[in-house]
Design a protein around this nucleic acid. Structure first.
Length: 268
DNA sequence: TTCCAGGCGTATC
DNA sequence: GATACGCATGGA
């Protein structure tokens, strides 16, 4: 467990292998707003947070109680996982080693399952600024990220204010199926991966990519491996015969480093 | 103006 | 099962 101390109304924690930009602004979560060079504000599990990087591996969780830190943020930021160990393992492969070195401060956030599912439904054929805008309007309207129950009584027309386009009907279908228990996110979370994929894909607008993202980002299924155009390029260029053995079982985490590396560091 | 964005549903072969 | 095309919206 991470070292931390209580300081007035804040928690100050020492977190290794953690960079705010690389973790909060790398396309895995869409509700974090950069306030300044070293500081972000956002919310998870109905808990608001302002977090600042104070250097030397110290991070200040502003206006956070110790119980909140332990019950929400310890889990959300995956603080019990040793990313030094993870990077060391996957760095047995040379391309992975470079990717880890390039952005070593990426951590896999343990997001709420429904929020992740809904967010990645919105992400399809869309760009990150627009995804953020749609989710911002959604949360503003409902006073926080709406539950499946709250959305299940909406029609696509009710959601026109989102300007989500053709995705509105997908959001409604997901909300109805999850609220009715027709799709159970708890069951999906614990199901064998193939069963989990199948159950998620009964939702209209959830295909292989969105299902994989919901599993990885919303259920910490690190064996899930979302393949988009960037990962296709990585695979074609470096891994034509598949991922190396050192990544098997934690492909999802490897994918994060590869995605960021390929998008921002590797020239065509 | 056209193209494209962390895809998917549908039609067609 | 593979491939082509439309889809809402808005920024480049």
């Amino acid at each position: 467990m991470t070292e931390y101390r209580v300081e007035n109304d804040d928690i100050v924690a020492k977190i290794a292998d953690f960079d705010l930009d690389e973790t909060l602004d790398c396309g895995q979560a869409f509700r974090w707003e950069k306030l300044s060079d070293n500081c972000y504000r956002g919310e998870a599990y109905n808990t608001p947070l302002t977090i600042a990087d104070e250097g030397e591996g110290l991070f200040r969780f502003k206006n956070t109680t110790e119980p909140q830190f332990l019950s929400v943020w310890r889990n959300y930021f995956d603080l019990d996982s040793d990313y030094g160990d993870i990077k060391s393992r996957i760095s047995a492969d040379e391309t992975m080693r470079k990717a880890c070195e390039y952005a070593g401060g990426i951590r896999l956030l343990r997001q709420d399952a429904w929020e992740a599912l809904c967010s990645f439904i919105i992400s399809q054929n869309n760009n990150i600024p627009r995804i953020k805008g749609i989710i911002h309007r959604l949360c503003e309207h409902f006073g926080g990220f709406p539950t499946a129950e709250a959305l299940s009584s909406c029609t696509p027309d009710d959601l026109a204010f989102l300007r989500a386009g053709f995705r509105a009907k997908y959001i409604v279908d997901a909300a109805k199926k999850v609220a009715a228990g027709e799709v159970s996110l708890d069951r999906v979370r614990n199901a064998p991966i193939e069963d989990a994929r199948k159950e998620l894909m009964t939702i209209i607008g959830v295909g292989p990519k969105v299902a994989e993202c919901a599993l990885l980002y919303g259920m910490y299924r690190v064996e899930a491996f979302p393949v988009d155009v960037w990962i296709k390029r990585v695979m074609a260029k470096y891994y034509p015969s598949g991922l190396p053995e050192c990544c098997i079982g934690i492909q999802g985490i490897a994918q994060q480093y590869l995605f960021h590396y390929m998008r921002t560091a590797v020239p065509d």
